[in-house]
Design a protein around this nucleic acid. Structure first.
Lengths: 214, 214
DNA sequence: GTAATGTTTTACCAATCGGTCAAATTATCG
DNA sequence: CGATAATTTGACCGATTGGTAAAACATTAC
């Protein structure tokens, strides 16, 4: 008889690891392009190449898949912000933060869209994470930025809105990819658009945050 | 007997106008917070305070409601960009564009989220509009910006990514509202956040686009 | 008023939704 | 090998999905 799923964490089979990975991979595709409510277990099962009951053997509910996916993404997603170093050179830190966020938008667009879908729809599953760990991390880094401004290393500015604007501009290239491609047109929409974006954003932020502005 | 719905455009009843308006208003609520696939006709009918068959008397399909909603929003959404004036003062034009986009994010967040949901999910219903009218409008305004740069009125920069970045930063306050509120916390999340955002963005862009940077 | 038109409701449909169950199958271990 | 545990399947469930048919009801035009 099958072990009840609650006790499964004790030792994980090779098959378990493989299948769970395949399910999460498929679910990332589906959830990121249809949102939670718009996705169905059948779609995920199809994409993972297995039957629905088989999928439900590994994850009890649709919510369980989504939850695990979101938890994973949330962690890796904040990695660049965590790397923000108070001891480093402000210009270099901000520049490298922008570059890393842009690389993530380029290399992990599905993860970005999964997250965007969740927030757009009111973040029903992760409000606590936003108000807790995320807020604390941003508060900490905002203080770093404020200290840089006080020390005269960058222009005085609202650190929260600075962070928001970097999030917005970089993730835009993942979340609004279709629009970006449509506007740039076929010729200009090659992967070069990420380099162009990086150049533009670095220019904008380096000049915009330079000391001694009105 | 009821007139076939295809012929209804001839003359519109008072009741027709009222009900259609109520349906679109309700649908804006529902679609903007659940996306197209995640929304149901029942939800919209409930929100509009009428029965499902009654709603379907005015709009034949779910798609028809969504389509009309998107068409409306798309038009008003581009109004600020259309107002971009080649003859005006570059700094003032950009500043006022940012301000207007920010006001729209504040006053019409549902419209912004409807649009974001659509793009996020691959823009299945409006790809043509993006590649056609939208691209043309952006192309035109990009040329204006390039001319300003050539005339030495603003720093040389990629006009497309400039526009993208303004879209991203302003719409962020509508689309990612939950996250913005969560991070700012209860005290700072009053409506003042839009003024803070405006101040930050104007500072960023005015300094960032100033002539004579590296 | 009455006839034609416009609107709303009730009852319903097939398809799909998330999820369960027991039986059949396969892998693992001694 | 045999036994035991892990995995997969097919058949199924009640609820919900988008949408229809027809009749009841309301409104308008004459």
């Amino acid at each position: 008889m099958a072990i009840p799923r609650a006790a499964k964490t004790q030792r994980r089979t090779r098959i378990q690891e493989e299948k769970e990975e395949r399910i999460l991979e498929a679910a990332l595709d589906v959830f990121s392009s249809s949102g939670f409510r718009g996705s169905t277990i059948d779609q995920i099962a199809d994409a993972a190449g297995m039957s629905k009951p088989n999928l439900l053997y590994y994850f009890r509910t649709k919510e369980a898949i989504h939850r695990q996916l979101i938890d994973r993404v949330l962690f890796t997603w904040l990695e660049p912000l965590r790397a923000f170093d108070a001891e480093g050179d402000p210009e270099a830190e901000i520049r490298s933060y922008i570059r890393r966020k842009l690389e993530m938008a380029r290399d992990f667009p599905r993860e970005s869209r999964l997250f965007a879908n969740e927030i757009l729809q009111g973040a029903p599953h992760i409000e606590d994470e936003l108000k807790g760990p995320l807020k604390e991390l941003v508060d900490e880094k905002a203080e770093v930025i404020r200290a840089w401004a006080r020390a005269g290393k960058i222009a005085a500015c609202d650190p929260y809105h600075l962070i928001f604007s970097i999030w917005a501009t970089t993730q835009h290239y993942a979340d609004f990819d279709v629009q970006v491609r449509a506007v740039l047109g076929q010729e200009a929409a090659g992967e070069g658009r990420f380099e162009d974006a990086a150049r533009f954003l670095e220019q904008l932020y380096m000049n915009g945050l330079r000391v001694g502005a009105d």
